[in-house]
Amino acid sequence: MKNFSGKVLFLDRSDINTDEIIPAKYLTEISKEALKPYLLEDLRIDGFAQGKDIKGKSVIITRANFGCGSSREHAPWALEVNGINMVIAESFARIFRQNMFNCGMMAVELPGQSIDHLFQVFSGKETSIETDLEKNVFILKADGLEEKAGFSISDFDRSLVVSGGWVEYADAKY
């Protein structure tokens, strides 16, 4: 199972699309590793600097409809090769969300007000998150602050995370 804890990158915008996560011109790469330098290359958010802000981060917290647009699984892969295995958002585009779990990664939805609260308390601070998959709780920490946030994922999504993805699951079963 992958790691779902570590430092947090806050992206304060809704509708971040897969062209922004990984531009189409890099889809000619056959290896996932080759995508690494280009993650979020075309994302324009005030105060976001691609090189410096991605480095060392393990989790993204963002707003609504993350991953809309193209079906490219290169989007989760570009996150994965940068050490980011989990995105927490108010909502996700369907294909992106499914791609994350199919890769054994996590796309977790929290209510809009919880996301607002996390942005208010932690955005701009050096924040870390611990994910407890047994108890379904996130523990966020920054500057001596600590908060817990419960979450839920479906049994099916959990089984994909635990079994390492959909290919092995489906080939054994169908």
Binding site: I95, F96, C103, D171
Partner: peptide, 13 residues
């Protein structure tokens, strides 16, 4: 539309 993993399972199964 689906991602590569769903496509892979579609092709296989």
């Amino acid at each position: 539309g689906v991602g590569t993993t769903d496509l892979e399972v579609g092709i296989l199964k």
